[in-house]
Nucleic acid binder design. Structure first.
Lengths: 204, 204
DNA sequence: TCGAGGATTGACCCGTCAGTCAGTATTTTG
DNA sequence: CAAAATACTGACTGACGGGTCAATCCTCGA
């Protein structure tokens, strides 16, 4: 019964962890990190406060776990979309559309992601490096798309890291508006408009 | 002596208010709203905690006053720059350059502005409307520049409000990188690169 | 110089909440 | 079924910090 017992324990572990993470995501998204309380998260998850601390060491760690979970899932999904696109233009479109699509389905996650990203930009902190790496990795992804596009004559020569950042920033801002305005339709249109802007600029 | 007495009081009022605002700006920028304490701000301003409450009703109000002061000054400066530019391209450049220039000189302000903007985007709050108006007013400024450019054949037809937002977002993101990376030079270059991106896109 | 009125101070009050842990419930094992 | 192990609970603690206010300090006119 050793194997089964262990499996049962694992299942329970996963069940609780998942439930708490889901509750935390909602509460953090609604109130922001500071205003959210462990009591509220515990209640939302249907467990006692103490139980939360059986699965996560601290409020901060719970928050970071919530963030990390979403970021990893987002990145994996977007990566898939990009890989199945051919041209640089299509890959950039996949980058934008994949993100919009994921965040539209996971608005709570995006709220956390967005504010945390902003404060990370501005306040150096201890756990910054870990997330900075995740972000940089995404920027690097865009950079390689751009470089390939330039090499193949699809994209004009430009400062690649800087341009990658601009596209990344534009995408984030576009998602913010989407999430804020609450329209879950029009994702395709938003993507097209944004791609058009990035591609052609505003010049006549 | 009525007039003089009043004037003296006013001078003192202004002196204290200014000192506290300045200290608050630095402390809020360094620690963020929640982690900042009134004790720390009071110490930085060289007054006792109670004195802070003689000039501002609450922590939140002090924060908002700090933010408002900067936003108004920024907007006034940028407005001047835009007014003295002729073409749409020059006005957009003035919009970007003016902001970069101001925030580069007032980095503490920008840190506050940036994080607050992000959380405003995501969490509806009581005092949102007042600041939302300020932001919208800036977006409207950009919109009228765009419309004029389109009318005069300088800019191609596009979704004006959306495009204005994109330019606004790009500018903010560019400043964030500047402030984060700490280079106070290269403002002109950054402006040019950004204008180029907005104008021509990345297409070959 | 005196004292009235205003400005300033900082010790204190009090609500909040992250984190703890002794006790209870549930499951497993022998 | 008893007892050991494991999971869970929620009342409690201690730190923290926003906000207060009685006491003190200054300034200035008489």
């Amino acid at each position: 019964m050793q194997v089964l017992a262990k499996s049962r324990k694992e299942v329970l572990q996963e069940f609780r962890t998942g439930g708490i993470l889901q509750a935390a995501r909602a509460v953090f998204a609604r109130n922001g990190y500071t205003a959210a309380t462990i009591d509220e998260i515990a209640e939302a998850a249907g467990v006692a406060k103490g139980t939360v601390y059986l699965y996560f060491d601290s409020k901060r760690e719970l928050f970071l776990a919530t963030l990390r979970e979403g970021v990893l899932e987002l990145h994996a999904e977007v990566q898939r979309d990009i890989d199945s696109a051919a041209s640089a233009a299509a890959k950039i479109r996949a980058f934008i559309h994949g993100r919009l699509h994921y965040c539209d389905r996971n608005r709570d996650f995006f709220r956390i992601y967005y504010t945390e990203f902003a404060s990370l930009q501005v306040h150096a902190s201890d756990e910054s490096p870990a997330f900075q790496d995740l972000y940089d990795q995404q920027a690097a992804l865009l950079e390689s798309i751009l470089r390939r596009g330039i090499r193949q004559g699809e994209i004009r020569s430009c400062n690649v890291p800087r341009t990658a950042r601009l596209i990344y920033d534009l995408t984030r801002a576009a998602i913010a508006r989407h999430v804020r305005d609450g329209k879950s339709n029009h994702i395709k249109e938003s993507t097209s408009e944004l791609c058009d802007f990035i591609w052609r600029g505003i010049q006549c």
